[in-house]
Design a protein around this nucleic acid. Structure first.
Lengths: 351, 351
DNA sequence: CTGAAAGCGCTTACAG
DNA sequence: CTGAAAGCGCTTACAG
């Protein structure tokens, strides 16, 4: 078997100089036929193109980037790549970015707001633009990017407004408060028993927006919210199970559970069924995120879909306009509509 | 509101020249205190470090890469970033790569074997190494990488051997055939009725390995495999539903369903329950992948776990050794053990 | 329509 | 222990 690393000589990469010599033109001309920077006589253009293909020349992107001060790399910053939500958004963005020749770099902020170190690591590679998904860079990190003139977009967040005053970035968001508010209002109007909120205890932007939505929906339906009606649990199946179990132990028999996530909703659903509670007959449940698992429970779980791929695509579009400077105006706020996906767990909903 | 793009002057990036001037040393010395390339007097080292921090200097990675002919970028090529499996592996790799200062770039091959164009796009950015996950580059693409002296690793595949002759890359795999074989053997030994395989119709490496595993497991148990015992369906919930429905329509009442994926297994499970078949009493089901949905069905689905994060981490380790040339020997094949996660759908399994 | 030369921001022989 | 200079592989004024 041949061993790797056996031959120490560097790979003989073919460069623009080789092409120029082969075609009998200057390096300048080679560059121009490639970039279309200026007109080249058809005959020489053909000669250069031939040289390129016979030599198998591919321009070094690093050198190009260094000289022209622009890469074609878009950096994505996400809290956690392993969370299904982000890859879906990234893929949505990739579909928009691929045709324009941009490459995608992914940075995982490890469930934190991006640190200065991470932003530097990103900036040092001179990305053409940055997309933050599911998090907002803080003021200091934004200043770093602004100083370097690197445009960035914030997507996958729950509210349109910036977290802290004047935002210089475009924002793509779903109005999670309105989505939860609407479904809460409809469910609350349909039942007499307790309408409870089993939310996540993370207190991120989305969690807070969803709790506000629940409260607003209750108000819309003219219903009071007792202290015991809101329980915050971990964002997990067990969180939902524990939350539901505690309610039952406290003698509360909810008629509606508005869940802060699908996994919480499914946990509640499973405990309800284990306790002989009919869903949706006696208890209606709605989740949030519309993950795949909502389709495999019995009954299936109704949920709010936030169109992640779409959000990613919109981020890419806004960013490309900033990069091309076809838009140079004030920060834009783009809303992606949510969809209530009605399945069995909510029964038939009027309105 | 301040408009983006208002000031057209380029960002005044501070360079090594600025630092050198400020510290009263040569650019060479600045470089050496940064890279540790050669000893620097402590007093000047301190002066340079001071200059760096007061000026906020950060070396341009592009320039560094161009000159030293080495980036610190690791490229990941996956069939589909939106498939949960890959981000999990990537995150496992990221944990290994982060401490060494490597950045991760992700390329989506759009559910195909990577094309020459994609490999070129990757190679043009001079990655330090490439990790292929869930797919194997073909001979031509491997030659391209070999010629450029870019080490690569193949991970997340189902068998240890290369797809085509001499493989020059390290491979990280799970023995999916053995995993399915073992569980099939145990289940087949425990029942008298039909033991069927509901596999995916994709005919990728993993699908084929799992079908072989089923057949081998049946042989181990001394059981015949009839033509009707193997059905290939789409890798989806509906695929599993349809497959199970067809079996029942054909008058086959399986005692065991070995599923090619969890979603197929869950589809079969739901249809079984809709038809009043007791799982695991009358029918035992085992899936593959151990996705989250296996924990929310009633009964919960037993499944085979392939430890994706671990596979990613191993890929990163092997690759780092190739990059550092602490290993330069023959291609290595590293197996990551699978785990049978027993849940309710298989009942109590002897052996 | 085309070329010679400078320069992007680093690292790295070469020299002292 | 330190510096001047070349060069990585391109693009882009400048010139003709």
């Amino acid at each position: 078997l041949p061993e790797t690393g056996t031959s120490p000589r560097p790979a003989a990469r073919v460069t623009a100089v080789d092409v120029a010599r082969f075609a009998g033109v200057s390096q300048t001309t080679v560059s121009h036929v490639l970039t279309g920077g200026r007109p080249v006589a058809e005959s020489t253009r053909v000669r250069v193109l031939d040289a390129i293909s016979t030599l198998g020349y591919r321009p070094n992107q690093l050198a190009r980037a260094l000289r022209s001060q622009t890469t074609k790399d878009i950096a994505f910053v996400v809290p956690n790549v392993a969370n299904v939500a982000y890859p879906i958004s990234i893929r949505g963005a990739a579909a928009v970015l691929r045709p324009t020749g941009h490459a995608i770099t992914v940075y995982d902020s490890d469930d934190h707001v991006p640190t200065q170190a991470l932003i530097h690591q990103i900036a040092d590679r001179m990305p053409t633009g940055v997309v933050f998904l599911g998090l907002r860079p803080s003021a200091r990190e934004r200043e770093t990017l602004d100083a370097l003139r690197v445009p960035y977009v914030i997507g996958g967040v729950a509210v349109g407004a910036g977290s802290e005053g004047a935002d210089r970035a475009d924002v793509v968001f779903t109005d999670q408060e309105a989505a939860v508010r609407a479904v809460t209002g409809r469910l609350a109007a349909a039942v007499d028993g307790p309408v409870v909120f089993l939310g996540g205890d993370a207190h991120d932007e989305g969690a807070d927006a969803r709790e506000r939505g629940y409260r607003a929906g209750m108000a819309d339906a003219g219903r009071e919210v007792a202290v015991a009606d809101v329980a915050l649990v971990p964002y997990s199946l067990d969180g939902g199970r524990d939350g539901m179990q505690r309610l039952l132990a406290d003698g509360i028999r909810p008629a509606v559970v508005v869940a802060g996530s699908d996994m919480i909703g499914i946990g509640a659903l499973l405990v309800a069924r284990e306790n002989g509670i009919d869903v949706p007959g006696e208890l209606r449940i709605v989740g949030f995120d519309n993950i795949e698992s909502t389709t495999v429970t019995v009954p299936t779980l109704s949920s709010i879909e936030t169109h992640l791929a779409d959000q990613g695509a919109q981020c890419a579009e806004l960013l490309l306009e900033r990069i091309a400077e076809t838009y140079t105006g004030a920060p834009r706020v783009r809303e992606v509509a949510t969809t209530l996906v009605q399945r069995a767990s909510t029964g038939v909903l009027a309105g």
